[in-house]
Design a protein around this nucleic acid. Structure first.
Length: 802
RNA sequence: GCCGCGGUGGUGGAACUGGUAUACACGCAGCACUUAAAAUGCUGUCUCGAAUGAGAUGCGGGUUCGAUUCCCGCCCGCGGCACCA
């Protein structure tokens, strides 16, 4: 039995002492930056989901080191933010203390799994050395006009007592506490992500990322090309602009519908003002949840006494205010075309508006029961009749002097938070000078400790006299510091740059080191960050590039997702369900190598998989088998070269398959291949033969990325004193992977009826003669005419008979 | 509703570019070792059938000598978006 505790401890100490995984910036080696999404330093500690991604990157890192690459593989801690703060409040301990405890715990847990991180580069986003540069980043964005303060309707979580970014609102609820989010009009800080909307979409094309993530980002950014069409209000000078993607349907407009928030509402002379005010007040009180989920039925108010003019045909059309039109998208006004838009159709039915067909579908199906939203040929559209939708959009927009434009669904990133545990925003509010950035020499703006950090709806930093009251850096008048803190996602939007020169105190990152290491070559993490971290990091990279700090466009060239590990009951692991598996327990009982291999053997990296503790015994048996096999094989007169042809073939095949599987991240099949190899070696050994040194060495190297502790021990047992990490990955001989004979399937009409053994390069004639001479085949072909023969060399021969 | 991904033994899964479906592992059964158990090793394990065989990759069609793989139409599950004009 493999004594995992003793051996794992031995090699972990060896790696630490020798700084085995320290990344160097080597001139003559090709670099590879392999990154994990750093863990949130939660009080719960590591769960079994973490090691899944970490093992994948670790296998890849260890593999590449042996292939001669210069590998950077760092780890650190995402430490600021709400969960840490909430935990601290619950315990009545300062979040700094609870966070440091969590970090220490994570550090210990991760180290015990034998990951090959360069621990010298460990970072903690809540340390002043780190957040100094998060603040620096904020200032650069501010200088560039990419960080701004504005009053806007924002998402407010009553439970967490803070605003949230759009990306943190899931189904109209706070992604953290799941309580409904309400809209509030507040002055907040934003990052201008929308400036990069277009590049954030086009940049995706060249990235080696899962299509699913690209699609999620594209949908989130929500590019839509259309036109703004101006509708004059009858008997006034007022013009209302409506955004549409379907200018081709302009002749089918039945009404102009505007959002309750629309600014021009107050300038209109409306006869039923009271009714309107009532409606606006009601819709203001509705949360977005009610406006969308609960109120499927559309409501609105017709504005009496005012009408709009359709610029296409000068028809007079009614104006409605309805809250299905969003004030925050497009122009806050739409042209309602009931015949060709599902929502407008529903609205028109309710308010009895005319439904006028102006687009003929190419295939006419059922009528009137719903709107036809597809494209087609124009009818009832004056001189545009007969045109197809695509052409008509351009022509009509031009005719009525509309402006073509592009809008995006994505909004700017709201980064200020009214909570304590985050990086302070480095801005000073001066009555005379307005917003004044903190001079860079004064960074970091330290998070004060003399405050009650429990949330009150206002930033707790306001309560700190030492923090809050300052002198204006420009005019020296009394001023006050910005008291909000930054969203944790700001910290994580640039951490991959800090790993590159984590100890620099005067610069955020060293330019020449950045040149050497960036961009990240492989990034692994969960899908849940598709529109959060992954989008923010891309934005920050592009912004820093435009400020000449970086010379590349995208931070992460290749991305892979690790699927979630579910509980044994197939449900998501959670404390309340009681199905959480603690990796420490598994590590203790089966060892780190078993846990690593088990998590990879479960199935494809990307798939969601249920945990099954019983199955670990399989991989543990695999390791035990290797252990005893090596101990039996290694003795004084161990032959150097393998002579057994079966083993020569299998080891060459195994090297080939394991190498290609690691490169394609098919770790599960790499492991089954190694199992097949071990079973073969074991069989040879139990039948009294010896496994030679070259075979044992090659296999130990193949095993080492997966089970590094055991592999190191076996490597030492084979007489090597310098560790396995930087040894050379074995090469295989293609000729030796080939079988001497192959089994060719013989089919009759596509059904397998037998098999024959031939040399792999046998010709069709040879195979055919052999096959037709076979008794089992004769039975089928006797007296039948062979119409056709299909031959796939080395695989099958198929006789088509009548 | 729209978009994306998936459906293979009792279980996790494998299968190159359309070429012998079910590798590898778990579980289960039997045997060996043992006073016994655990551990370990060996053998078997898709279904029906005594058998030559027949049928199985969610369901129904199609293309093909041959389909888990390609095409059409459904059903189910998971994930994303959610009045975005």
């Amino acid at each position: 039995m493999y004594p995992h505790k003793k051996i794992e401890k031995k090699w972990q100490e060896y790696w630490a002492k020798n700084q085995t995984f320290r990344a160097s910036e080597s001139e003559n080696k090709e670099k590879c930056y392999i990154l994990d999404m750093f863990p949130y330093a939660s009080s719960d500690g590591l769960h079994v989901g973490h090691p899944r991604g970490y093992t994948a990157t670790d296998i890849y890192s260890r593999y590449l080191r042996m292939c001669g690459y210069d590998v950077l593989h760092p780890i650190g801690w995402d430490a600021f933010g709400l969960p840490a703060e909430n935990f601290a409040i619950k315990k009545g301990i300062h979040p700094h203390e609870t966070t440091q405890n969590s970090i220490a715990n994570f550090h210990k847990q991760i180290q015990s799994l034998g990951f090959s991180y360069d621990w010298d580069r460990e970072i903690d986003t809540s340390s002043p050395q780190y957040y100094k540069w998060t603040q620096w980043l904020f200032l650069q964005l501010y200088k560039k006009g990419l960080a701004y303060k504005a009053k806007a309707p924002v998402n407010w979580c009553e439970h967490c007592q803070t605003v949230l970014a759009n990306e943190q609102v899931v189904a109209n609820c706070c992604e953290r506490c799941k309580n409904p989010v309400i809209q509030k009009l507040l002055e907040q800080w934003f990052f201008k992500v929308t400036n990069y909307a277009d590049e954030l979409i086009t940049g995706l094309d060249d990235l080696d990322w899962p299509e699913s993530i690209k699609t999620i980002q594209r949908n989130w950014i929500g590019k839509s090309e259309g036109a703004i069409i101006t509708f004059p209000i009858k008997d006034t000078d007022i013009l209302i602009r409506a955004f549409t993607t379907r200018a081709d349907t302009l002749f089918g407009v039945s009404a102009l519908v505007i959002a309750p928030e629309h600014p021009l509402l107050s300038s209109l002379n409306i006869h039923n003002q009271e009714e309107l005010d009532d409606y606006i007040a009601k819709s203001k009180h509705k949360s977005d949840l009610q406006r969308t989920f609960l109120d499927k039925e559309k409501t609105g108010v017709r504005l009496d006494g005012v009408n709009a003019i359709n610029p296409a045909n000068n028809e007079e059309i009614p104006i409605f205010v309805a809250d299905y039109v969003l004030g925050s998208y497009g122009t806050g006004a739409i042209m309602s075309v009931p015949a060709h838009d599902a929502r407008d159709f529903e609205f028109a039915k309710k308010y009895d508006l005319p439904i006028k067909d102006v687009i003929m579908p190419s295939v006419v199906e059922d009528k009137i029961s719903e709107a036809y939203i597809g494209e087609g040929v124009l009818v009832n559209s004056g001189k545009f009749d007969g045109m197809i939708s695509q052409e008509a959009r351009v022509a009509i927009t031009k005719k009525i002097k509309g402006e073509t434009t592009t809008t995006y669904r994505m909004r700017d990133w709201l980064v200020s938070r009214q909570r304590y545990w985050g990086s302070p925003i480095p801005i000073i509010n001066c009555e005379k000078c307005g917003l004044v950035p903190v001079p860079e020499v004064d960074l970091p703006v330290l998070l004060p400790t003399d405050v009650d950090f429990r949330p009150t709806g206002e930033s707790p930093l306001v309560a700190s006299k030492t923090f809050h009251d300052v002198k204006c850096p420009t005019c020296n008048c009394p001023a006050r510091r910005e008291s909000d803190t930054m969203d944790t996602f700001v910290c994580s939007s640039w951490y991959y740059l800090r790993y590159i020169s984590p100890h620099e105190n005067d610069i955020p990152f060293d330019q020449s080191a950045i040149q050497h290491w960036m961009p990240v070559d492989l990034y692994i993490g969960g899908v849940e960050h598709a529109v959060l971290h992954l989008l923010y990091a891309r934005f920050i990279t592009k912004a820093l590039r435009d400020m000449k700090f970086l010379k590349f466009d995208e931070p992460f060239l290749k991305l892979r997702n690790q699927g979630m590990i579910l509980g044994e009951d197939g449900e998501k692991m959670s404390k309340s369900r009681g199905n959480v598996i603690n990796p420490d327990t598994i590590n203790e009982e089966y060892g780190a190598d078993s846990l690593r291999i088990y998590e990879m053997f479960l199935g494809p990296l990307n798939d969601v998989m249920p945990w099954n503790t019983r199955s670990i015994s399989g991989v543990r048996r695999f390791l035990d088998k290797i252990w005893t096999m090596y101990h039996t094989a290694i003795h004084a007169d161990l032959p150097e070269k393998q002579t057994d042809p079966t083993l020569i073939k299998i080891i060459n095949k195994t090297i080939k398959k394991v190498s290609s599987d690691i490169e394609s991240m098919s770790f599960n099949t790499a492991i089954s291949t190694m199992m097949i190899c071990v079973n073969a070696m074991h069989k040879v050994q139990t039948t009294g033969h010896t496994i030679a040194r070259d075979t044992l060495e090659s296999f130990a190297v193949l095993l080492s990325p997966f089970a590094p502790h055991m592999a190191e021990e076996l490597w030492e047992l084979l007489g090597h004193a310098d560790g396995i990490t930087y040894t050379t990955w074995p090469v295989y001989d293609e000729a030796l992977t080939k079988d001497i004979t192959v089994t060719v399937a013989v089919q009759i009409n596509g059904k397998s009826r037998g098999q024959i053994c031939t040399p792999p390069d046998a010709t069709q004639d040879e195979v055919q003669t052999l096959a037709l001479a076979d008794e089992a085949i004769k039975k089928w072909t006797n007296g039948k005419e062979i119409k056709k023969v299909i031959f796939v060399p080395g695989r099958l021969i198929n006789f088509v008979i009548i």
